[in-house]
Simulated scan of single mutants.
Amino acid sequence: MTQEEPQVRWLGAAVPAVAAVLVYAWARWCFGGSEAPSATVALVGGAALVLGAAAVYLLPVRGAGGLFGALFLALGLLSIVVAVEQTAVRGEVAVCVVREVHTKVEPSFGEGATEKTVHRLALDCPGGYPDELKDAPPSVSRGAELRIAYDAGRRVSPAVAGATSPWKPALSALLLLGLSTVLAAGRSRSQA
């Protein structure tokens, strides 16, 4: 075993942790920084980080384990972005009246697939913003009053006050990044 092999072995296993920190910092800055970038720069920069991490991961980790590990890595990094978005400060709260309720059934394909029902609310809020709420709770009817939390800078989507929780995407990120790390450590070790 040469001296370079142990370094290569752990490079793949270190990529998920390093990439997670970088994507977290990038998303935190994009969603909450006082001098946040435009949406285009945020999206392109985030995509470059996720795809770059997957490419770096594939250098030392080959085969099917590398492919699945890179996929788990990318999905874990995207889950981090969702968790950061869920914790982003929505510093303003407005009491809004539901003007209209739009319900759309999205078909699913495949054996045993179930349809997904999406609810979107058209809102009348003081000051005119927010004017709609996507992925609204299904129990809301026309004329109802809702407390809507929103970011005046419009960097994150409005949400029903108190309804966002980062736990599900954060746990998904931990699981996916953990699987990616285990695959990298196992594949790299067997290749050495």
Rank of each mutant, 00 (worst) to 15 (best):
E132G: 00
E132T: 00
L133V: 00
L133K: 00
K134C: 00
K134P: 01
K134S: 01
K134V: 01
D135F: 04
A136S: 03
A136L: 02
P137Y: 02
P138K: 01
P138V: 00
P138I: 02
P138F: 01
S139D: 09
S139A: 07
V140Q: 02
V140N: 01
V140F: 01
S141M: 04
R142C: 05
R142K: 13
R142P: 00
G143C: 04
G143W: 03
G143L: 06
G143F: 02
A144H: 06
E145P: 10
E145Y: 11
E145V: 09
E145R: 12
L146H: 09
R147N: 08
R147S: 14
R147F: 01
R147A: 15
R147P: 04
I148N: 01
I148G: 04
A149K: 02
Y150L: 06
Y150K: 06
Y150M: 12
Y150Q: 04
Y150A: 07
Y150F: 15
D151S: 05
D151I: 13
D151T: 10
D151L: 09
D151H: 07
A152G: 10
A152I: 09
A152F: 06
A152Q: 12
G153T: 09
R154V: 06
R154D: 05
R154Q: 13
R154P: 00
R155Y: 03
V156K: 00
V156I: 06
V156G: 02
S157D: 14
S157F: 10
S157W: 06
P158W: 12
P158R: 09
P158M: 10
P158L: 13
P158G: 08
P158I: 10
P158N: 10
A159N: 05
A159I: 08
V160R: 08
A161G: 04
G162N: 07
G162M: 07
A163T: 14
T164M: 11
T164N: 09
T164I: 07
S165R: 10
S165P: 11
S165Q: 14
S165G: 15
S165F: 12
P166D: 10
P166K: 11
W167I: 15
K168V: 15
K168S: 14
K168E: 15
K168C: 11
P169H: 10
P169V: 11
A170F: 11
A170R: 07
L171Q: 11
L171F: 13
S172M: 12
S172R: 04
S172L: 15
A173Y: 07
A173P: 06
A173D: 09
L174Y: 12
L174Q: 10
L174F: 15
L175A: 15
L175R: 05
L176K: 00
L176R: 02
L176G: 12
L176H: 05
L176F: 13
L177W: 02
L177V: 14
L177A: 05
G178T: 13
G178R: 06
G178P: 08
L179N: 11
L179M: 14
L179K: 02
S180H: 07
S180D: 08
T181V: 03
T181A: 06
T181E: 03
T181S: 03
V182N: 03
V182F: 14
L183A: 15
L183S: 05
L183T: 13
A184N: 11
A184K: 05
A184Y: 09
A184H: 10
A184C: 13
